[in-house]
Amino acid sequence: MNRIDRLTAILIQLQSKKRVPLVEIEERFEIGRRTVFRDIRALTEAGVPIGGDAAEGYFIVEGYHLPPVMLNKEEAAALLLGGKLLAPKADKKTYRAFEEALLKIKAVLRYSDKDYLQTLEDKVQVLQFRHSSDTEDQDRFFPDIQKAVAGHLLVDMLYYSNYSESINQRKVAPLGLVYYNDNWHIIGFCFLRKQIRDFRTTRVRELMLLEETFDPCDYPNYDDFLKEQLSRFDVEEVTVEIRNDITRFISDAKYNYGFVSEKKGQEWTEMKFVIPDHHFFVHWMMMHGKYGRILSPPSLIKRAKELSREIFEHYL
């Protein structure tokens, strides 16, 4: 990237946030601190009102705006593909807002780029088998959850606990919103339990935004909580063999089960997986019948034998 393009990109970056830390500019453009200082000085000499410093970060003085940014077709296509992937997982209001934003982007593209984007939109699909009731539950409260996280608003909610199979009222300070294990989760301080807890959004039965606000600095760092949670998932290496004549049928599915590597032999392909739990993996392996076999660990082989016996007795 030449310097003129970089100066323009830094301007756009400064307009994207209230304050941009120095390290973010360094990492984005892969440049040193002195180069950032020179670029900031060049922009201020050109009349751009930039405030801040290296310690606190930089910002553009309120009231100054660049002309509308033009996207090229590759950037617009990247947003289109992102929207396709977003559709099955986002709540309806969020996805409608994304579609409106994409329409505004399409409106300022060149005619040739509009044709390119329209063709791509017609030809790219992300399939889902059904719209689950879980996603519908998420739709009801997701916009309010976003408001609470962004505005530091306390929430009062009725929450279904899968562990106790009961519904409890919880007052929560929502510290973050995290997506993992195919679901959105509120990471927040629970006033009932007096500690940070993980609340899956699809288990929220009722939710009300309170006028009371909170300061995130008054609570523990939820990133530390997440790291601790994830560290509890013990993973295990598994080795299996799949007959070569069916490996092509599981080329995509294997990635859902922690696939790591494979080594193709004359008749069988040896595959290695890293899994957190035996339950789902052994059921998946049983689907392959005599065309798949577990080599290790012994505990997984034992569970496969038990499951085979259960299936046999069930149909006997």
Score class of each variant (00 low, 15 high):
E165R: 10
D134T: 15
H131M: 12
Y163A: 15
A101V: 08
G176L: 03
K114D: 00
R96A: 13
Y179T: 06
N168R: 10
A97E: 11
F141I: 05
D139S: 09
T94Y: 00
S161N: 04
V178E: 05
R170N: 01
R140W: 07
Q128G: 09
A148G: 06
L127A: 10
A107N: 13
S133I: 14
K123M: 09
K171L: 08
K123Y: 12
E136S: 11
N168W: 12
L158A: 15
D144H: 12
D122S: 04
Q125M: 11
F98H: 14
P174M: 11
S133W: 07
V149M: 12
L103R: 06
K123G: 05
D144W: 04
L103I: 09
Q128T: 14
Y111A: 08
D156Y: 14
E100Y: 05
W184N: 00
S164E: 12
V155I: 11
A148N: 14
K104G: 10
A173G: 05
I145D: 09
R110I: 04
R110M: 07
L175C: 02
D144K: 13
D156H: 09
E165S: 13
Q125S: 14
S112R: 15
Y163V: 15
R110E: 09
F141T: 14
D182M: 07
H185W: 11
Q169A: 10
D144P: 05
S161Q: 00
I186C: 14
E121C: 00
E121N: 02
R130D: 10
S112V: 06
S132H: 02
G176W: 03
N168S: 14
Y163G: 07
K92I: 05
K114G: 00
K93F: 05
E100N: 09
F141P: 12
L127E: 12
M157K: 08
A107D: 04
L117Y: 00
T135P: 03
L153E: 13
E121H: 01
D139Q: 13
F98I: 04
Q125F: 10
A150N: 08
Y116R: 02
T135F: 08
Y180L: 04
Y180A: 07
R96S: 11
V126Y: 05
Q138T: 11
D122R: 05
S164R: 08
D134M: 13
F142V: 15
D182F: 04
E100F: 11
L158S: 04
M157P: 03
T119D: 06
S132G: 00
V149L: 15
L127C: 12
E99C: 02
V124A: 07
S161A: 02
W184T: 00
K92G: 03
V108Q: 08
V124F: 07
Y163M: 09
V172W: 00
K171T: 07
V108Y: 13
A101L: 13
I105N: 13
S133E: 08
F129D: 08
Y116V: 03
Q125W: 15
Q146V: 12
Y180S: 15
A150R: 05
L154C: 01
Q118T: 10
D115S: 14
